[in-house]
Design a protein around this nucleic acid. Structure first.
Lengths: 136, 136
DNA sequence: TATTGTTATACTCTATAACTATA
DNA sequence: TATAGTTATAGAGTATAACAATA
């Protein structure tokens, strides 16, 4: 069975991701958190955010409204194009991301503590290859 | 940095899961597919499905209704308890699961093809430990 | 005329509360 | 009286269509 490695890896990654999602209680709805993550690298227009998240422009308007009301993002006019709006993270937005990451890492740290040294080393050795898969 | 392994593994698994979800186009909504997966091992009552999926009983009633209309599951009365209903997969339901799995494995197979033998072996060696993490 | 962003409206998924049938 | 399942109703997220402002 040449594809059993693919199936096994797919299942392992999906199961672990599911556990991470279950164990960490998000402060905001998943789709709002996802927008926040995309704003981390750099501010974006709602249009671009809608494309990245694969939702309609009106949906993204709603999401940005919610995030703005929560004080997690801010809107600013684009100086070079009057049609556009620039959405960016506030300090509170950055803090929420950091808090969520810490919570998720905490579950994973405990899970890795249950392994022995040999198992941890096997995972460490496989990590570059795993990231290569994700980069594809 | 004692938790960098945890962070790295968490990111790798989440990134790969995200790619799998993006690359495979599901025939039905994600929450309906998830119910189907839980019915694969054995038929279940709507109550139990609601608990597993962490949704309310009325929501699960709706989901089961949708799946039944699509011909993917069937309802049957429980012979030993007149209050209960037993939901089970139809052949069409099993086929949809198989088709989706094949599609997802196909992406992962191509991704693994891009690796060299050494990298594939490192992943293979780490798999038992990864499943142990997921089992936690 | 095309593009960005928003508002208007409808549909879907979700939840809580209330109801029916069975234990 | 408690539990399984459903129906009624409301709230949030999404989409398409229509509109305003700018390029």
């Amino acid at each position: 069975m040449p594809d059993s490695l693919a199936t096994e890896l797919r299942l392992a990654c999906q199961r672990i991701s599911r556990r991470i999602r279950y164990e960490s209680t998000l402060d905001i709805a998943p789709h709002l958190y996802s927008v926040l993550i995309h704003l981390e690298r750099s501010p974006q227009t709602p249009r671009r955010l809608a494309d990245i998240e694969r939702v309609s422009a009106p949906s993204m308007t709603r999401s940005v409204n919610s995030l703005e009301e929560l004080g997690l993002v801010g809107r600013a006019p684009d100086p070079s194009d009057g049609r556009q709006v620039i959405v960016s993270l506030t300090d509170a937005g950055r803090e929420l991301i950091a808090r969520t990451r810490a919570q998720r890492d905490s579950w994973m740290t405990r899970a890795l503590d249950d392994l022995d040294d040999t198992e941890r080393e096997l995972i460490r050795a496989a990590l570059p290859a795993l990231h290569k898969v994700a980069d594809r």
